[in-house]
Amino acid sequence: MKYEDFIDNEYLEKMAEQLREGGTNVVLGCLDDLINWGRSNSLWPLTFATSCCGIEFMAVGAARYDFARFGFEVTRASPRQADFIMVAGTITHKMAPVLKRLYDQMADPKYVIAVGGCAISGGPFKKSYHVVNGVDTILPVDVYIPGCPPRPEAMLYGLMQLQRKVRLERFFGGVNKQIGKKEYEELMRRDLTAEKIDLNVETEHKL
């Protein structure tokens, strides 16, 4: 499929163009383009799958569909090394905090793709007592790929939409925000206390 054939979502590019007309730094703008070109062509997914959709995700990685053609082949088992997470499968109440934690452990810039009916809205299990009705209630989602399960082609299409999104971002001053040392330390401290509260460390001793 040629790039021009993506006739939907072109509002993204239009918007970016308009903004750029307002004036971009020539050097930074070019660097942005270059870096984003690189970034969008080597997006590494987290090896994450909970159920049926995950098998189709594996099929996308395997011989016939081969997402290596687009630079997704390096699936990472550690969230620290991954650029995006494909939420492939049903997310249950028990899994939700785990998923959130995985997301929090990923390094910025990070993206989320919701794959399949379950991840989008709860899918066939919407009425269940133990299923989260859409991961967007707990994570910010960038791309939705509907289906039950989506065909591998649909997944590739969705992945390419993500690439597109990445290409239009501003890297400098945008997604690659630098923070000061002080701010960083404070964030770390906050994370630690939050984790302690989260883990109910106090109550654990009482039991």
């Binding site: 249950t92 028990k94 269940s128 007592y129 133990h130 299923v131």
Partner: peptide, 14 residues
């Protein structure tokens, strides 16, 4: 277990 417990048996009852 239970990280993908979807409650199918209960759903079937309705």
């Amino acid at each position: 277990c239970g990280y993908i417990h979807r409650g199918i048996e209960k759903m079937c009852e309705s």
